[in-house]
Amino acid sequence: MKSAMMPQPYRVTARREETADTVTLDLAPLAAPLPPYAPGQFTMVYAFGVGEVPISISGGENGVITHTVRSVGAVTRAVCAARVGDTLGLRGPFGAGWGVPAPFGADLVLVAGGIGLAPLRPVLDHALRERDRYRHVLLLIGARTPGDLLYSSDHAAWARAGADVRVTVDRADRSWTGRVGLVTALFDELWLDPGRTTAYVCGPELMMRFTADALRARGIPEPAIRVSLERNMRCGVGWCGHCQLGPLLLCRDGPVVGYDHAAPLLTVKEL
């Protein structure tokens, strides 16, 4: 039996610079591909000699895995610096995903903050592929500045494919003519049907808390609000103990959990 700790070699087949510090890589297997992933799962990405980081899967078909990576530390810097043709190691896919598909006829509300759009992208792709399955597909995106928006060249295509895409930024520049404000302010424009809505929320932890609280205040039941949590992950397979959040081992029980599980934990300081 192959150990879950052994990375598989993947070659970078495409590289797109999303923002000043964020890169999207398409990775194709050089040896055996990893098992198929579910939206919301992550892999452990190994940069040769530098180390390993957990990265959510942003897409990919036929064995290819797409990762959108923000350069925030030594390992992500090395991953972001990978060129087409370079090799990275992947393990996974690990963790509990978003839980798509949602029930037939549901309204999907995807709320993304910053880099949090990356793990939601497979949910969006699924919803647009099976657009008839759902009533409304709403994508609410919050970013720091217009220059920090991910996949901005795809937004129009998503709208054409049937998503209601709304974008807001914390700080506008002179070119920006869209919304300015917190992503939760977008809820004021919408009439959400609490009985039909499944919400998928991803972004910085505080952003997710404010967003989930705002959704709850609009009557959406906590289990229907899915959030993707984050703690230090070293092994991805439940052995190393680092990613504990109270009762949860996030690499195994998460990273996606219902807000009914998350809410009581996120307000405990230093849990």
Binding site: M5, G49, G51, E52, R234, W239, C240, H242
Partner: peptide, 24 residues
Amino acid sequence: CFCTTVEDTTDLTGEVAGRWQRWD
């Protein structure tokens, strides 16, 4: 207590890398 962390190493040539698990 089972918690561990990992250490990544390379040799002086930078061509051979290793990964070690140690108690944390």
